[in-house]
Amino acid sequence: MKIKCILIDDEPFALNLLEDDLLNFTQIEILQKFNSPIEVVDYLKKHPVDLIFLDIQMPGQLGTQFIRELQDPPLVIFTTAYHQYAVEGFELNAVDYLLKPISKERLTTAIRKVEDIVARQTKHFNEKDHIVIHVEYKKTKIFLNEINYIEGLKDYVKIYLVDRQVPLLTRSNLRGMEKLLPANDFVRIHNSFIVNKTRIEHCTLTKLTLREVALPVGKKYVKNIEQLHTKITSNKDNMI
C-alpha cells in the first residue's frame, strides 16, 4: 500500500531536494508540495494524507504550531535545520525529527517507522467490526456492516444505516471518517460520499447504486472504484 504524503517547506531548494530523495522509495506517493502550512488546511479537508514532511521555522507559522492546531493530524516527520525544537516535536508525537542536511540513512529509518505504524493501523482496521462516534453528545457504537453510506456536510457527517430511515449526525468530516473506516470495506467516491463496498448493487465509473439510492462518482475518485467496477462487471458476466 502506498503511503500518501505531502511536503511543506518555505525553501524551494530544500523542498525539491527532499522530493528527489523520496522518489527513491517506491512505497511513498508524493501528493503535493507546499511553501507554507497556511495553504495546507483546506487541502487536508479534501484529500486523505497519511504523512506530512514538515519544516519548522517558516514565515507566518511555525510547523509545530500548525500541527497543534490541526484537529486530526496525519503522521508527521519534522525536517529542520534547528535541533532546539526536537523535544517539542516528539511531544507532538512526531514519527521522527530529521536534521538538515538529511542523510539517506536517516530518511530510510524514518520511513521504516512510518511503514510499521501504518501496518499496525491497517491490521487493527481489518480486525475491528465497529466504530464509536458522538451522537447527540453521547458515545454511540456502530457496527461496520450496518453502515450503508456516509455523507459529508462541511463540519458534520450523516451516517446512513441499513434499515434505518433517519441518518445519524456527528460532528466530523469525511477525512476524519476515512481514518476510522477500514479501506478494505469502504471507499471514497466523491467529495461528499463514502460507501460500504458490500452494499453496492450496481457500479459504473460515474454512478454507484446502493439499495434505493444512487450516488455520483467524482472525477478525482474514479481511480478508487475502477478495480471495484471491473470486479462487479466480471461477477455479473459470470452469472449469465
Rank of each mutant, 00 (worst) to 15 (best):
1 M>T: 00
3 I>A: 06
6 I>R: 10
9 D>I: 06
11 E>W: 04
21 D>K: 15
21 D>A: 11
23 L>I: 09
29 E>H: 13
32 Q>S: 08
32 Q>P: 00
33 K>F: 02
38 I>F: 03
45 K>I: 05
45 K>M: 06
48 P>W: 00
52 I>H: 06
52 I>V: 13
53 F>Q: 01
53 F>M: 06
54 L>C: 11
59 P>T: 01
68 R>L: 08
76 V>Q: 07
78 F>N: 05
78 F>E: 03
79 T>N: 11
82 Y>C: 07
88 E>H: 06
92 L>N: 11
92 L>D: 06
98 L>F: 09
99 L>Q: 13
106 R>F: 14
108 T>R: 05
118 V>G: 00
121 Q>E: 13
127 E>T: 13
127 E>M: 11
128 K>A: 02
139 K>R: 15
145 N>K: 12
145 N>W: 03
146 E>C: 01
147 I>L: 02
148 N>Q: 12
149 Y>W: 06
150 I>F: 03
156 Y>Q: 03
157 V>S: 05
159 I>N: 04
162 V>Q: 13
165 Q>H: 06
166 V>L: 13
169 L>F: 13
170 T>H: 10
172 S>H: 11
172 S>K: 11
177 M>V: 12
184 N>Y: 08
189 I>P: 00
192 S>R: 06
195 V>D: 03
197 K>P: 12
202 H>M: 09
203 C>Y: 11
205 L>W: 04
206 T>A: 15
206 T>Q: 14
215 L>D: 07
219 K>R: 14
222 V>D: 02
235 N>G: 01
239 M>W: 03
